[in-house]
Nucleic acid binder design. Structure first.
Length: 233
DNA sequence: GCCTTGAGTACTTAGGTACG
DNA sequence: CGTACCTAAGTACTCAAGGC
């Protein structure tokens, strides 16, 4: 039985009572990048059991109705479940990776005479799958994450990516911590981003420190990781 | 516009550990 | 004991910023 990250029915049954919301703009059914980002950030910020979750998100997404937001969350949940259950395959980036390697990642001659392939940047999709794998299998099970989630990367690559990822989280956490001690010229928005990054980073690092696979316990940990990463991209 | 430099990131490798 | 895997540390590369 695969873990369900959130119970849609319980969420949908939550009270729809009145929270103040700005006057509606023109509603759109398409979700653009910015809206998705706001949506993800909101999920990272609010607990999924939070009362009036959808109303709070809707305040941030004036061009979306509450039913649209519910549907979007449901779609996201379905995607995760279908990937987890193997009903749908993870998007295969092998072809593009190969293409990219040929285009921009030629083998590089090393001092030792061996050839070293130039690095292929991780896409946001790959990192999202990595985070889902991390949530599902826990820190350390890079083989499972590679085979079942990030199929475009081998276990060594996944491990390497994870290593730098957690290092980055720690660094950003330390920086954010410093920024709270030593005020800077940052704008309030930037300061907010730093504090958010610190909060999410520390949570993600804490989650990652748990023995595998118990890390896959709460959806907020998943979204903390998800959120902190997407702040970067 | 070109060069230098430093930060960021992907990749490699050596050492350690768990398992059959 | 051999194999497979993970971790930590180091290496190589890209790119943006700054100086000239």
């Amino acid at each position: 039985m695969e873990p369900s990250y959130f119970s849609i029915s319980s969420l949908c049954n939550q009270s729809l009572s009145c929270l103040s919301r700005p006057p509606q703009l023109e509603y759109t059914t398409e979700w653009n990048f910015e809206e998705n980002k706001i949506f993800e950030n909101s999920l990272a910020e609010f607990d999924l059991d939070c009362p009036q979750l959808f109303e709070k998100i809707a305040i941030r997404l004036p061009r979306k109705t509450i039913p649209q937001i519910k549907k979007h969350l449901e779609d996201l949940s379905n995607d995760i479940e279908m990937i987890d259950s193997g009903l749908i395959s993870v998007p295969n980036f092998n072809k593009t990776s190969e293409t990219n390697e040929k285009k921009s990642a030629p083998a590089v001659e090393r001092k030792s005479g061996k050839k070293r392939r130039k690095g292929v940047p991780w896409t946001s999709e790959e990192h999202e799958l990595f985070l889902r794998g991390l949530e599902r299998f826990g820190k350390g099970d890079w083989r499972s994450i590679s085979r079942q989630c990030v199929v475009t990367k081998n276990p060594t690559q996944v491990a390497s990516h994870a290593q730098k990822y957690f290092l980055r989280l720690q660094n950003s956490g330390a920086q954010a911590q410093q920024s709270t001690l030593r005020p800077s010229n940052k704008t309030s928005k930037e300061a907010l981003m730093s504090s958010t990054a610190f909060a999410t980073a520390t949570t993600a690092v804490a989650a990652a420190s748990l023995p595998a696979p118990s890390v896959a316990s709460t959806s907020d940990q998943f979204y903390d990781s998800f959120h902190s990463y997407h702040c970067r991209y």
